[in-house]
Each structure stands twice: as structure tokens, then as C-alpha cells.
Design a protein around this nucleic acid. Sequence first.
DNA 1: GTGCATGCTTGATCCAGATCAAGGTCAAAC
DNA 2: GTTTGACCTTGATCTGGATCAAGCATGCAC
Lengths: 247, 247
Amino acid sequence: MSQRHITFPQRECADCPIRHRAVCARCETDELEQLEAIKYYRNYEAGQTIIWAGDKMDFVASVVHGVAALTQTMEDGRRQMVGLLLPSDFLGRPNRDRAAYDVTATTDLQLCCFRRLPFQQMLSSTPHVSQRLLEMTLDELDAAREWMLLLGRKTAREKIASFLSIIARRDAAQHTPRPGGAVAFDLPLTREAMADYLGLTLETVSRQMSALKNDGVIKLDGKRHIIVPDFAALMDETGDDADGGVY
Amino acid sequence: MSQRHITFPQRECADCPIRHRAVCARCETDELEQLEAIKYYRNYEAGQTIIWAGDKMDFVASVVHGVAALTQTMEDGRRQMVGLLLPSDFLGRPNRDRAAYDVTATTDLQLCCFRRLPFQQMLSSTPHVSQRLLEMTLDELDAAREWMLLLGRKTAREKIASFLSIIARRDAAQHTPRPGGAVAFDLPLTREAMADYLGLTLETVSRQMSALKNDGVIKLDGKRHIIVPDFAALMDETGDDADGGVY
DNA sequence: GTGCATGCTTGATCCAGATCAAGGTCAAAC
DNA sequence: GTTTGACCTTGATCTGGATCAAGCATGCAC
């Protein structure tokens, strides 16, 4: 079968959930035009709920800046975070008209939204969008599986160290990297939200943060700003093997 | 933009990982021909390792019958299952040439395999395959998120009950449903593998199975055959709300 | 300023599930 | 039919993290 799509090198559509790694020469124009036509922005303050599980959801979106959390809650109030969306992450599921999880902004947040129905139609008519969305979803599934190892088998201390290293790495990916083993970043979550992420109580999170601080693995500047003098020392606390993770 | 693909009603390709929900009139023939040309079968016995994390993986596959498990292992031997593949589930990731997880057959298993490179090429040239694969991956992500709630927040008893209800439901989906609230099925996992699934020890799994048996929620016929006299009673033990789960 | 709320820390105690340790069951091998 | 080994169950004890309970720090409203 002949290749029906001629591809060009990387081309970005700002704020678009789908960063085209390659753009189809045939449908490029239509695709970008369509996305532009159905796109709009929404802003939320830290702590605001974006949508409750079960609510109608007439859009999908991409995080422009800030952080959003997906959480599940049991009847008796036990809560587990099941997704943490940082800039460029995708929110919502095509072909589903109701939210499956509670979504909250854990920092001030801007979303780039697309009305769901036109977005779906574009999905079914243009191949590259669903191919890119597939890659993104597979990455998210890998992250979920790493998270499952954390939840099922790691100690409280390892959970905290793992969480800090995840945030540090994802934060670094947004900024130009700085030299040396030292790293600094802001926590985008309260101690309670960290507990929901890690399957712990907020007291245990607080205690283990103090323990890592006392052991010199991290330094705290205020409650939220973290300094990691030696990133390798933090990684040693995560329980992951040195090269760590997905092949 | 005009719809470039004319679609017909459902059409199945036996053993194909992609159940076409609709088939493109233009590319249908090529697509099926291509899949057929690169497909072959592999069989494994219960307990056999299919591939180790980090190994070269030159195929993707669909489970025909039997059950396979994806597991992660920490250096000190702690293990967590992160995927459980039942018939029709997909194994492997396009565009990745090494396995990210250990894969083992937990029962006798048959895979329908596709050589990875031709499969990838087909992915990039035919839109429906990646659209279908996206749907499947999104379903798997939802399942992973349910699993995260289980690992992070459920009690041992709730974990066991949830696991049994998951297996019962997926088992029922393969067979024609029988009437009444009673359900029976075989466990496709040893107690140890259940422990790896649930983030418990095998002793705790065994104790909680006994407890559910003593409380009349389940009956055991041998170690592996489970009878659930009242499925609603089992669901009550899972900690999930009545209508349970994704919207 | 004072008052109040939100988020965080730390201490004391408790308990679910891990760990350590035996022993039981069953089927296949001899 | 007895030996072997894989798999499972049950008991006794231990412990990491939960729970209960104060207090502290910071920032905002007035």
C-alpha cells in the first residue's frame, strides 16, 4: 500500500493539545483551521473545582499553565488522586460526554479548550490527531503504571522521594536546565493533595518531609519551595533502580 | 472539510487486535490483507515468562485465550502487577522496541502476534487502526485509575472483593450471561499473583479469601473455582458506590 | 493592630496488614 | 503408595502508617 500522507518536520500549534510531530501535507491546513475555530480559554484559581465526576463535559482541553488534579472519592470520603495534569497535558476523553473523575485546579490554571463535538469530528476525519493522541495516552498509561508500583509497594519515605523527583523532572522539562546536581522547584500541591496522590495521610506526608529535611536530602524554603542539593541522593531514596523506569 | 472515509457497520477480523467498529471503504481491503500477512500465533504454558523488561520486543500481539500479567519488580524483590491481559487485550507498544515490563502467562495462553515494524507502518498509513487503538488505550487508562484507587485507599477485604468482581465481570463478558444473581468462575491467578495485583502479601490474600468464605460472600470449590451466590453482596464489599465506576 | 481560617507540624496511641513460622492439601513422579 | 514440590492456610508476633489530639505559622479581613 502506498504512503498516502507526505510528512514534514516538526511543526507546533501553540496551546494545541496535539503537538504535530509531523504534519500531513494534504490535510494540514484544514486541521489547524478547524482547531483554531473551536478553541477558547478558561482560567481557574488554585483550589477551584473545574468539574465533578458525572457532570456533563462539553469540551476537551490542554493545560496551558498551572496544574490540575483528577481524583476519585469513595462514599465515606477516602480520596485518591488518579491523574496530575501539568502544562501540555490533555484533559477529557473524546467520545465521552461526562467526566469520569473530579477535576480541580491545584494552582492557578489556564486551559485551552476545544468544544468536544467538533473536536471529535476532526479526530475521525484526520489521522494525525488520533495518532498523536494515542502516543500521549500511552505515555500516560506508562506513568499510571509507575504510579501503581508506588502505591502498591513503596514505603512512605520512598513515596515522598519519588513524588519529589517526578515533580522536579517535570518542572525541569519546562525550563532550560541549570548546571550541577542541585535542583529547586515549587510544590504545586498542598500536603493533603500530596497525601491523595501518594495514598497516605497528610500527617505521614508531613513527617516524611521533615525526615528527608533532617537527613539533608532536601531543604525547605517556606512550605512549598524545595531545594534538592544532590539530586542523585534524592533518587537513592525512591527505591527505583538507578537508570529507572520505562525502556 | 469533507468526510474522507465512508463507513460501513461493524466488521470483525478474528484474532485481530483491532476490532473495526466501522471499516473504511477505501482502505478496508488493504488493511485486512496487511494484518493477515504479518500475523502468526504463539503459545505459552501457565507460569512461562513471555518477555523480560528491557528485552527486545519485535512484535505486538492480541490475547486470543488465556491470561497474561505485566509486572514491575524492584531491586529488593518487591513486585507489583501493573497490567492483566485477558482475551482481546493488546500487548506491546507501537514505536517502542523494548518491553517496559515483565510479561508472564498466568494460565495457558495463546497470542496472535504481528511483527512490529509492518504493524507500525500500517498504523501510520491507516486511520482506523490508530483510532481503535486509542479507544482501547483510553479504556486501559480508566482501568488503571480504578486500580490506583484500589491500591491507594482500599482495605485488604475491599481489595479482594474488588478483584473478584473484576474477574467475574470480565469472565461474564466472554460467555453468554446466565440468569439469576449467582455467578461462578475460575481464578486465573495464584494467591501470590493476586497479592502482586492487589499490593498485599499472599498470606493476607489467603486470610481475606477465607474470611469472605466464612461470611458466606463466596464459596470455594477447590482453590481456584469461585462461586458467588449473590453478586450484589460481593459488590457491597468492594467499597465502590452502587452504580460503580466510570460515567 | 486583633481575630480567624487555612495549612502545616509534632506527639501519643492504636491497629491492619506484614512478617515469621508451621503445617495442610493435592497431583504428579517414581 | 510414598515421595516430592507447588501451592495454600493458619497462628503468633511485630511494625509502619493511621488515627486522635494539640499546637504553630502565615496571611487575610476587619
